[in-house]
């Protein structure tokens, strides 16, 4: 690894300028969103999005919470996301454990089944899943969303966790087995703690995906009372008139939970991304 001092100053300056420029470009939309959220619709209408704001106030955040309905959509998002997340992680870690550590007939077949599931574009599932939920009588319930999220995310999670568990030395489990530990015990006491980084990374990812999902609630939820924040905020988009300030304030508020999860677990998220890159 080269020492830092070896890099010429000029190169460093260029690099940093480049980094700062790219960062700014990335931040511009967020900055505009924040500014827009504090303007009024009339102001946006007559001066466009990129004008200097005439007035600045935080009223739209309260509007988003009250009139925008965030006070009911945001809890709904959690009611849907949390059980989905827990069920996905629980089931996929069990599945991954068996796929990684047991030899049984059709093991590869099941493994490919999980991998294949992730390849399936969800668009082709919209109609069958809607029909199924209708036939099962769970259409327009939280449960329908929790079930589809869990089922749909299971493939990816099992795939990642299985590959990670493969890297845990078999000897560890064998010695546990010799000491009389049950399989569930091995899973809970040895495998889970060892796969924690992967677990945390997946939890972060899955939380974001499920929390930000738009299409499934659109298909499976009919009443506003049960809508998560994504489809809920969309109801502020009219045919002709968009309630921009409230939509954007709402969207900014809705990113807070994802941010919090990310901040807490980001170390593992990044570690998870580079899993297996340096053996």
């Amino acid at each position: 690894m080269p020492k830092r001092n070896n890099v010429p100053l000029a190169v460093k300056i260029v690099l940093y300028l480049f980094l700062v420029a790219v960062t700014l470009i990335w931040l511009v939309p967020i900055f505009i969103a924040i500014i827009t959220s504090m303007r009024t619709n009339a102001d946006i209408m007559s001066h466009g999005f990129l004008a200097m704001p005439k007035t600045i106030d935080l009223k739209s955040y309260f509007e988003a919470w009250q009139r925008g309905g965030l006070h009911k959509y945001l809890p709904n998002s959690f009611i849907i996301t949390m059980p989905s997340l827990v069920l996905t992680l629980l089931l996929s870690s069990l599945g991954a454990y068996s796929l990684a550590r047991f030899k049984f007939k059709g093991r590869t077949f099941f493994y490919f089944l999980f991998v294949g599931g992730t390849m399936l574009p969800f668009q082709i599932l919209l109609l069958p899943v809607f029909k199924l939920s209708d036939a099962l009588g769970i259409y327009d319930t939280y449960f329908a969303l929790i079930a589809i999220h869990t089922a749909f995310q299971l493939g990816f999670c099992t795939f990642v966790l299985r590959n990670y568990m493969m890297t845990v030395p078999v000897q560890v489990m064998e010695s546990a087995r010799i000491d009389g530990c049950t399989e569930l015990g091995i899973w809970g006491k040895i495998m889970l703690p060892l796969t924690l980084p992967a677990f945390a990374a997946i939890a972060t990812l899955e939380f974001t995906w499920i929390f930000n999902d738009y299409i499934w609630p659109l298909v499976l939820i009919r009443s506003s009372e049960k809508m998560p924040v994504t489809t809920g905020l969309a109801t502020l988009q009219g045919q002709y008139v968009q309630d921009w300030t409230v939509i954007i304030s709402g969207a900014l508020l809705a990113t807070i939970p994802t941010l919090i999860v990310f901040i807490f677990l980001q170390r593992y998220f990044i570690a998870g991304l580079t899993l297996g890159s340096n053996k």
Binding site: F130, Y139, L218, V219, R222, S224, E225, A234, Q237, G238
Partner: peptide, 20 residues
């Protein structure tokens, strides 16, 4: 329930074919 105008145009097909 209010549904976003564009979304409604899609969702109505689901509404009308559902049993409830």
């Amino acid at each position: 329930s209010t549904v976003a105008h564009e979304d409604f145009k899609q969702a109505i097909r689901a509404y009308l074919t559902s049993s409830a």
